[in-house]
């Protein structure tokens, strides 16, 4: 097989880190919101206020094979802002892939299903996903005429619904307050655009299913 056209190996350009900077500043902006919540806790060490409210590890869901994430909860845990680093290893793809995503989740309902189990059944979320590499551009490269392509391979967004079961697992032996197991089902704009007007594409083909674990502070 000819490989003379194969493009240069993927490199992380400084401009690729723009989104990281954006996420960083976004987190900086929202941290003061968390102060109200953390003040009620008994933490005497001030820096703990800045610790994320939870860490996550997600499998699949379109944002990576395995994606570690951190985030903050607001409005009595009704709203979450999370960011993930997603990695796709070579054993599930021709090339390994690195990406980051920012995710906003609204959690409308919750109920207790036992003494130590809380069910959060209907979460709705939006995410924006950025894949690193020169071929995944965000701004149309300058060698193209204006508006030659209308989308950006490097950054696309989507929506999802999900559910979560919170348990006290890890709560007794570690500083964590508990562990949640969650699932999510979503799709992204580029897939929805492909499905539009095409009955021949099965709906299941545009669905990104993922699940993961959250450990809460």
């Amino acid at each position: 097989m000819s490989s003379k056209y194969q493009k240069a190996p993927m490199k992380l350009k400084p401009s690729d880190f723009k989104i990281l900077v954006v996420i960083f500043f976004l987190l900086l902006c929202v941290i003061p919101w968390t102060l109200g919540q953390t003040r009620q806790r008994t933490d005497s060490v001030k820096y703990k206020r800045f610790l994320p409210d939870y860490v996550k590890m997600q499998f699949a869901g379109g944002i990576g094979f395995l994606s570690p994430g951190v985030g903050y909860s607001f409005f009595k845990q009704r709203f979450e802002v999370s960011c993930f680093y997603g990695y796709v290893p070579e054993f599930v793809s021709a090339d390994d892939l690195h990406s980051v995503s920012l995710q906003l989740t609204a959690k409308f309902f919750r109920f207790n299903a036992g003494k130590n189990i809380e069910v959060v059944p209907l979460n709705i979320g939006w995410f924006i996903h950025h894949t690193f590499g020169h071929e995944y551009w965000i701004k149309l490269p300058s060698y193209y005429p204006d508006e030659y392509y209308w989308w950006s391979p490097g950054r696309n967004s989507g929506v999802f619904v999900g559910g979560e079961v919170k348990t006290r697992f890890l709560g007794n032996k570690t500083p964590a307050s508990g562990t949640a197991f969650y699932v999510r089902v979503g799709s992204r704009g580029l897939y929805i655009a492909s499905k539009f007007g095409n009955a021949s594409i099965p709906l299941s083909d545009i669905i990104e299913f993922g699940f993961g674990v959250s450990v809460y502070r």
Partner: peptide
């Protein structure tokens, strides 16, 4: 069964 990335080639 699962999607890891829109750019995963498998």
């Amino acid at each position: 069964t699962f999607d890891y990335s829109p750019y995963a080639i498998d």
